[in-house]
């Protein structure tokens, strides 16, 4: 199975998973970065697309790569590696853009690849305050445990640093 098809399968899986919302569990889309596994609540994800041509926009935060044209809509994209201050990696055909929607703000997150949709019961998630009180880590919502795997669950709102940017823009 080619990687491209893999994306599509996952996208479909995502759609199915969103329809089936159970109460005690939450579903997360996971993706690997360096050696860690990260998770995003699927409720805010609208779709996953392959990498598209990016137009640079001047004077942006270092991690905002620019804007893409997603079927006629202009959406900004963030390089998650850069956001986490990891070393950059060239985009290839495995690179994905996870499109998230937060209160009608649509943003794309560029990640190396995406892995799967997992269920993590609420009681298996440790809150982030347990792990660290550092201000820099505030984009971590919690740590999910599945067996011996640990998934870092991201707080997208914090990841985007919306207030900080709004301040710059205004």
């Amino acid at each position: 199975m080619s990687e491209k098809a893999g994306n599509e399968v996952l996208d479909e899986q995502l759609t199915n998973a969103k329809e089936d919302v159970s109460v005690s569990e939450e579903k997360y889309l996971t993706f690997p970065l360096n050696k860690e596994e990260f998770g995003i609540d699927i409720q805010c994800i609208t779709e996953i697309v392959g990498i598209l041509s990016i137009t640079e926009v001047p004077d942006m935060e270092y991690y905002i790569k620019g804007v893409i044209n997603l079927r006629g809509k202009i959406i900004p994209v963030i390089d998650v590696r850069k956001r986490f201050n990891m070393e950059e990696k060239e985009y290839n055909d495995r690179t994905c853009i996870i499109v998230v929607n937060l209160d009608d703000l649509v943003v794309g997150l560029i990640v190396d690849t995406v892995s799967e949709v997992v269920n993590i019961p609420v009681n298996q998630i440790e809150s982030s305050s347990v792990i660290s009180n550092e201000a820099g880590a505030n984009y971590i919502k919690g740590m999910g445990k599945i067996g011996d795997r640990v998934i870092i669950i991201l707080d997208i709102e914090q990841l985007l640093e919306r207030e900080k940017l709004a301040h710059i823009g205004g």
Partner: peptide
Amino acid sequence: GLSDYIGDVRGA
């Protein structure tokens, strides 16, 4: 418009 997220862009 450029996204609200980006805000005003210098010179554009």
